[in-house]
Computed example of a mutant assay.
Amino acid sequence: MRVDFYQLADQGARISVLAALAAKLAEEQERLLVVAEDEGLLASLDRQLWEAGKATSFLAHGREGGPDDKRQPVLLSTRTTAPNLARNILIADGQWREAALKYDRAFYLFGEETLGGAREAWKALGLTSDAERHYWAQEEGRWVEKG
């Protein structure tokens, strides 16, 4: 099990990380569950994914609760269960969820406002699980592994 921590420099980084990770997983025929507690954040991510797809290429995705949940390569949800049978989870709201450890890979996005929780999650994972941890931060517009 692997957990990738992404420290977001700004709110715009959230959608760029999400779109890049989702596109890479889609190339590998993998599915992704995107989790956030806030319905407003999920609606914003949904809208931004559609907008991002117009500029580059279409990234199939949907919001949980639709008739095609099982078929969605990227599913946005408030819950940590994956109707689309994803083995990858992306936590978009900076609130760590232990249920992420049931997935093959977790992507944990956090910003300044959730930095304390990210530090706690990093430490706890190092002490209590066999999760492989990676920490990423932006430098000069690129993602660089810091730990």
Score class of each variant (00 low, 15 high):
M1Q: 07
R2Q: 11
V3E: 13
F5T: 13
Y6T: 07
Y6P: 09
L8A: 10
A9G: 12
A9I: 05
Q11H: 14
G12M: 03
A13W: 00
R14K: 12
R14I: 00
I15V: 15
V17M: 02
V17S: 08
V17C: 12
L18P: 08
L18I: 08
A22P: 13
A23C: 01
A23S: 11
K24G: 06
L25F: 12
E27L: 02
E28Q: 08
Q29R: 07
E30A: 10
L32C: 11
A36I: 10
E37F: 01
E37G: 06
D38Q: 13
D38M: 03
D38I: 00
E39G: 03
L41P: 02
A43Y: 05
A43G: 11
D46N: 15
R47P: 01
Q48L: 09
Q48Y: 06
L49E: 03
W50H: 11
W50N: 12
W50V: 04
E51A: 13
E51Y: 07
G53I: 03
A55M: 02
F58L: 12
A60L: 04
H61D: 13
H61F: 09
G62W: 05
P67T: 07
P67Q: 12
R71V: 00
Q72G: 04
P73E: 04
V74H: 11
L75N: 10
L76G: 03
R79V: 02
T81E: 07
T81S: 05
A82K: 03
N84R: 00
L85T: 11
R87W: 00
R87K: 15
I89T: 08
L90W: 03
D93Y: 07
G94I: 08
G94D: 09
Q95A: 07
W96E: 13
A99N: 04
A99E: 15
A100K: 00
A100V: 06
A100Y: 02
A100E: 02
L101R: 15
K102E: 15
K102C: 09
Y103K: 14
D104S: 08
D104G: 07
R105A: 02
R105K: 06
Y108Q: 03
F110I: 03
F110R: 09
F110T: 05
L115D: 12
A121D: 09
A121Y: 08
W122Y: 15
K123Y: 06
K123D: 11
G126E: 11
L127A: 14
A131R: 02
E132R: 08
H134A: 14
Y135E: 00
Y135D: 00
Y135L: 04
Y135T: 01
Y135H: 01
Q138A: 10
E139S: 02
E139Q: 06
E140L: 07
G141P: 05
G141S: 10
R142L: 04
W143V: 13
V144Y: 08
E145K: 12
